[in-house]
Design a protein around this nucleic acid. Structure first.
Lengths: 199, 199
DNA sequence: GTCTATATCGCGATAGAC
DNA sequence: GTCTATCGCGATATAGAC
């Protein structure tokens, strides 16, 4: 089809913009990431950029979606692997996050903005939390069945706590980079595993 | 002194504005809380209102400071009481928060915005986290010494986790009000106390 | 289908009158 | 102490060039 050329060029440009935007946000933080600056960085006018994404919110949603895909490939393959090593996967993910402060900031700001019902990105984050709970929940259950966690753990509550800790640690870390997020995630796993209070 | 009249009138007006703003934010959420709307609500022009607080950021900082003071009086007196009931105090605080969604939203949005170094409210939140960690840390230590927690708990890590969980639960709760924040805080206390994995 | 230029709107901030 | 007027900026809707 002849159309495919033009179409795939649009797709390619979109991808190029997304990749560039991800880098800029990671480097410069959120508040410097105005539509104009991102447009400049990819050699487009402000409207030229929005032509591909519609609104600023949609652009940022796509940036985060893309980031999730990448992270999933790198740190989320505890699903594919035979052994239930989700604990390690989450820890590595958190450790990686500490190296991209701009993205942590973007996530934190955008997700708190979109918490308001009716916000254009509200659905994205609502689903994201749902998906995350399902994924982590399955991982916790597998760990339990593998005997790595006490048989009486409340998998659902542990899942919610684990997600909450990851979000909450980011806040404390942004205000004090000395806070070791991965270390605290690991400690929570130890608490859940019951490796304490036996002395 | 004659001056006192004028001076105290300014103070009184400030207090009046703060109280009104707190209510409006609690009711309407953050994004509707523009300086203009808040000004209208107290019968002032935009500039009239900013005359008392300087900038929007300073106004919101004062709102949150005031809220902390109120909360401290109601839920933070585990310091004054003889018995170490901080666990219950935090649980009650969290339960109360679920009744003022607008304030939770304000805190979430404003604290994530101010996470960027150089933001006018950065110092406020940095100190707030520091103070919170000191306060909760002391409470955890007292619980440990009272024998309500295992002697080998890592008080510092538990403190950071507890704060993180409270922040993180708010995010999940905003996207799904069915999430019972107080319940999950209680479960974390149980994990820390080691009341699990003995069956 | 891709992109620019222009216009508009809402926001916070500032200057200066009263 | 409070107002009116105005500015600058970010996001975005529209028209239209290529």
């Amino acid at each position: 089809m002849v159309q495919r050329g033009a179409y795939s060029k649009g797709i390619a440009k979109r991808e190029e913009i997304l990749t560039a935007a991800l880098e800029i946000v990671a480097r410069n933080g959120y508040s410097r990431a105005t539509v104009r600056e991102l447009a400049d960085a990819v050699g487009l006018s402000q409207t030229g950029l929005l032509h591909y994404f519609g609104t600023k919110e949609q652009l940022f949603t796509e940036i985060l979606r893309r980031r999730d895909e990448v992270d999933q490939r790198f740190y989320g393959d505890f699903d594919a692997a035979g052994l239930p090593d989700m604990a390690g996967g989450l820890e590595r993910l958190v450790r990686h996050n500490a190296e991209v402060p701009g993205l942590v900031q973007l996530f934190s700001r955008f997700s708190s903005e979109a918490a308001e019902p009716g916000h254009p990105a509200h659905e994205f984050f609502r689903e994201r939390y749902e998906t995350a709970r399902a994924g982590i929940g399955a991982g916790v259950e597998r760990l339990r069945q593998a005997g790595r966690l006490p048989s009486d753990v409340d998998t659902e509550r542990v899942t919610v706590l684990m997600l909450a800790v990851m979000d909450g640690l980011q806040m404390q870390w942004m205000y004090d980079p000395a806070v070791d997020m991965a270390d605290h995630v690991a400690y929570l796993w130890r608490l859940v595993a019951g490796e304490q209070g036996e002395g």
